[in-house]
């Protein structure tokens, strides 16, 4: 199966700091790919690079074989790549429905009519359960609602590829559950999703595959099961000593 999105030896620099070095992986059609790693590993930077906000220092990002390098962010979005932001930034002076309608209006080259954009906005709000707050202003929403608005804005764009930056962070388990369901449903309907997340329960239960970053490098890639037992990953998260102990225990079991 050909990848819908190819991250090809991507490097990003912030001044003298290498934020990402030679990261490569592919996003397959209709899969949920988890992107995890400790704080500062470069997860958000990678999403910023895909959506055209952070410039590439090396390598390439391709969507359906077309290079996105140097493309303005709005053009990348119009190729069907939508994203959410970890720090939610809705348009403060637009209502919830208007916020979602912006996504519906501008995310394609063929601009839909006002009515159609509004209809799509409400469809997206229904998907995330925000219909009742359509006329509210963003500052009147709770954190959970603002996270869902962020998701609705992206969904109203009718993307093919969805980049989710910690849409579940800061939410309680009851709030996380419906979002996990939604993300799974979206993938079933054909969307390809990159999920950056710290909530491990969400990552393990939602993702088909997982890529792990540390200090700007990819240290592991595989299914959730593979990742959970990957020595490099355990080391990155829990320290070298713990990883060694785990390895000894595992060796003891098989011996």
């Amino acid at each position: 199966m050909t990848d819908v999105l190819t991250i090809d030896n991507v490097s990003v620099n912030f001044g003298g700091v290498k934020a990402l070095s030679d990261v490569s992986f592919g996003l397959r059609p209709a899969e949920v790919l988890g992107l995890i790693g400790p704080n500062g590993a470069g997860k958000t930077t990678l999403l910023n690079t895909i959506s055209g906000i952070a410039p590439l220092a090396g390598g390439d990002v391709r969507a359906d074989g077309v290079s996105l390098a140097g493309m303005r962010p709005f053009r990348i979005t119009r190729r069907g790549i939508a994203r959410t932001f970890q720090i939610v930034r809705p348009f403060a002076h637009l209502t919830v429905a208007e916020n979602a309608a912006v996504g519906a209006t501008f995310a394609s080259h063929a601009r839909p009519s006002r009515e159609e954009a509004v209809a799509r906005a409400f469809e997206a709000l229904a998907q995330v359960g925000l219909t009742a707050k359509a006329d509210a202003l963003p500052h009147q929403l709770t954190l959970s609602e603002r996270k869902r608005l962020e998701l609705a804005r992206a969904l109203a764009m009718k993307p093919r590829i969805l980049l989710l930056d910690e849409v579940m962070a800061g939410l309680n388990l009851a709030e996380v559950e419906p979002i996990i369901e939604l993300v799974r449903g979206l993938a079933r309907s054909g969307l390809s999703i990159i999920l950056v997340e710290h909530v491990m329960k969400a990552v393990m239960s939602t993702c088909d595959r997982i890529v792990v970053l540390q200090f700007g490098r990819k240290i592991a890639e595989g299914t959730p099961e593979q990742i959970a037992s990957d020595r490099n990953v355990i080391e990155a998260y829990l320290g070298q000593r713990f990883a060694e102990r785990r390895a000894r225990e595992a060796a003891g079991r098989t011996a």
């Binding site: 303005r72 962010p73 930034r89 348009f91 002076h93 208007e98 501008f106």
Partner: peptide, 27 residues
């Protein structure tokens, strides 16, 4: 105020890079 251009302007007034990522040609 009712045209898409007005919406684009109000959006970029609130958050320009956010507007750009939502598909608005802000320039």
């Amino acid at each position: 105020s009712r045209h898409w251009l007005g919406t684009a302007l109000r959006a970029l007034k609130d958050n320009e890079s956010g507007a750009e990522v939502m598909g608005i040609d802000t320039v």
